[in-house]
């Protein structure tokens, strides 16, 4: 059965506005793509991976840093401490069903981001989780992005 590709344009625009505000407030487009790729890996969103892998490459992200995202904890020297804290927070906020966001994960992130940075990082993780849900549930195929 084909799944609906309908998405109310008002919902799309409102989601895009949340994304834009989160990204702007975070002020780190490179980190933003790493976070969005990692959440999309965990949520298995093909459409979102295609989009954010493309955006990361366009921004000049290295292939190594893209490839090893799904095993970032096992890598050395590929990601900064700040990025590692953001990736750990991404995983915790993405998988709420296995039990909240642990204090140590939150505190590590709070060490590297001020309150505004943290609020926008959480917002970015939240909104990519929203896009992941909109795309996976409707099984939107990858490849919809215009470079």
């Amino acid at each position: 059965m084909n799944r609906t590709q309908l998405l109310d344009p008002k919902v799309f625009r409102a989601m895009a506005a949340v994304s834009a505000a989160a990204k702007k407030g975070l002020g780190d487009p490179g980190l933003a793509e790493l976070v969005m790729i990692r959440a999309s890996q965990i949520n298995h969103c093909a459409f979102c991976l295609d989009m954010h892998l493309g955006l990361a490459r366009e921004q000049g992200e290295s292939e190594d840093r893209i490839h090893f995202l799904s095993a970032w904890e096992e890598t050395e020297d590929l990601y900064s401490e700040r990025e590692r804290a953001a990736l750990a927070l991404t995983e915790a906020v993405t998988v709420l069903t296995e039990g909240f966001v642990p204090d140590e994960v939150y505190e590590a992130a709070a060490k590297h981001f001020d309150e505004a940075g943290l609020a926008h990082l959480i917002a970015l993780i939240t909104v990519i989780n929203g896009w992941n849900r909109l795309m996976v549930s409707r099984r939107v195929p990858p490849g919809g992005r215009q470079p």
Binding site: V11, A14, M15, A17, V18, A20, A21, A22, K24, G25, E115, A116, L118, A119, H120, I122, A123
Partner: peptide
């Protein structure tokens, strides 16, 4: 968070 990211909060309310 809403105080620290007011633009995001406004956009969430709209969403």
């Amino acid at each position: 968070w809403a105080q620290h990211a007011p633009e995001v909060y406004k956009a969430m309310i709209q969403l």
